[in-house]
Amino acid sequence: MNEQPAIEVRHLSHRYGARLALDRVSLTLQRGGFNALLGPNGAGKSTLFALLTRLYRIQQGDILFEGVPVDEAPRHYLGHLGVVFQQSTLDLDLTVQQNLEYHGALHGLSSRQIRARAACELEWLGLAERRHDRVRALNGGHRRRVEIARALLHQPSVLLLDEASAGLDIASRQTINRAVRSLCNERGLTVLWATHLLEEVAPDDPLIILHRGRVCARGSGAAICREQGIDSVTELFERLTGAPAA
């Protein structure tokens, strides 16, 4: 069995002019695990995502995918990556199916493959009936599910979700969180779930807490709490970041 982490980030730093947004961030995402990235607003989560998704160039440090620096094989890496961004990236004027077709084509899938994969993912996410609806007509929770279906269309091995549940009601948040967790168990997908909502993190989840561009805690939530002599992840988060838990 390959024990190499799916993604390894080494000493990653990023600046916007004089402002340091990420400061020597290091972390690993174990294969097939649900990894939670916690941090208050402005912690640097989205900058880290932009670097992980290659929307930003790496200024300092390394990102390795299956042990290989992503700069050495960027297309191979992007082909294995599924991403749900914080801000919706769906084309509101197109239908659900058209959005998926566009994404699938950009990942080199044929029309037949796209139809089969789209039917499978939309069925799994309970959206099969809505595939010919325009995205504009869907509510926030359904749009998020479409984004997840789209991110899974090309069968990635790593799924990155940046505040995927932001702005949704509690029921939708829980539905999406459960669905994504099941991907790790059922498909062996590696997930990085970035959030500032502690209710979305289970005590045993591998946890990375980011604050002011630095990793201030890493490991299983329960283990870090034990080390620090704290009862809950909420308390841990508040102590490390000084921000009230959401």
Partner: peptide, 17 residues
């Protein structure tokens, strides 16, 4: 609107896109 990111996340060379 953010939909440009879909294009940029493609493994196909950006110049070709």
């Amino acid at each position: 609107m953010g939909s440009m990111k879909v294009l940029l996340m493609s493994p196909v060379p950006r110049s070709w896109l």
